[in-house]
């Protein structure tokens, strides 16, 4: 039986007394599924992602994550759920005075992993994203693309149950974008549920088998029926030699 990692029921969100930025969202992200969240700028993609990675509570409706109803969950119960989620933020959110190595190591250290294990995993991950020679560099001296790769490495290093990525390939070249997407696919094969938000419709074509979620003015449209009737698992990308 496929269980839901995240489930939304009639969820709405407004900031302060403004109009609702998200309306009547009902969907489920199944374990091991791969989703691409599409929508134009201002459609509410980032707000929806915030709800998914538990940075925001909805103003109405119910959200469950990993089987826990989180809408009314006490805040001291949130960290355990958050540690199961990896996030690639659109603005990277690297800790400015920590090196690339220490930024990537954060999730493992928060989880209390031994330092030798942290070192081995972080070095391997930074090698994967092509930043072996930039381990000691701080974010201020990294290019936008390098920062994004550090952000991706940090999000996936703890092998999360749910990976949420906001425009994860926006600042990197095509070859590195393919590497990152391949990394996500490999993670997905290991059982991680993945949600990628993008306004780049071409990205969908590079992820065959991914389910598409389209946000239009805060509401979820499902013209293809992909959300209600998800396709079979996709064929992974072939790496360039």
């Amino acid at each position: 039986m496929v269980s839901s990692v995240v489930r939304f029921e009639n969820v709405g969100l407004r900031y302060g007394t403004g109009a609702e930025v998200l309306r009547d969202l009902s969907f489920a992200l199944d374990r091991g599924s791969f989703h691409v969240l599409l929508g134009s700028s201002g459609a509410g993609k980032t707000s929806l992602l915030k709800l998914i990675y538990l940075a925001q509570r909805p103003t109405r409706g119910f959200i469950s994550a990993f089987g826990e109803e989180v809408t009314g969950l006490p805040r001291d119960a949130l960290p355990a759920l958050r540690r199961r989620i990896g996030v690639v933020f659109q603005d990277f959110r690297l800790v400015p005075h920590l090196s690339a190595f220490d930024n990537v190591a954060l999730p493992l250290r928060i989880a209390g992993r031994p330092e030798d294990e942290v070192r081995a995993h972080v070095e391997e991950m930074l090698e994967w994203v092509g930043l072996t020679d930039r381990m000691a560099a701080r974010p201020a001296v990294l290019s936008g693309g390098e920062q994004q790769r550090v952000a991706v490495a940090r999000a996936v290093i703890g092998r999360p149950d749910l990976l949420v990525a906001d425009e994860p390939t926006g600042n990197i070249d095509a070859e590195m974008a393919d590497r990152v997407l391949h990394l996500f696919q490999e993670l997905n094969k290991l059982g991680t549920t993945i949600v990628i938000a993008t306004h780049d419709v071409h990205l969908v074509s590079r992820l065959p088998g991914a389910q598409m979620l389209r946000l239009v003015a805060g509401s979820l449209s499902d013209p293809t029926g992909a959300v209600r009737h998800p396709p079979k698992p996709f064929r992974p990308l072939k790496m360039r030699p």
């Binding site: 538990l54 001291d76 996030v87 954060l106 989880a111």
Partner: peptide, 12 residues
């Protein structure tokens, strides 16, 4: 910003 990030990563 750093503290919010740590929270989102599951720091208690």
């Amino acid at each position: 910003p750093t503290i919010e990030l740590l929270h989102l990563m599951g720091t208690e």
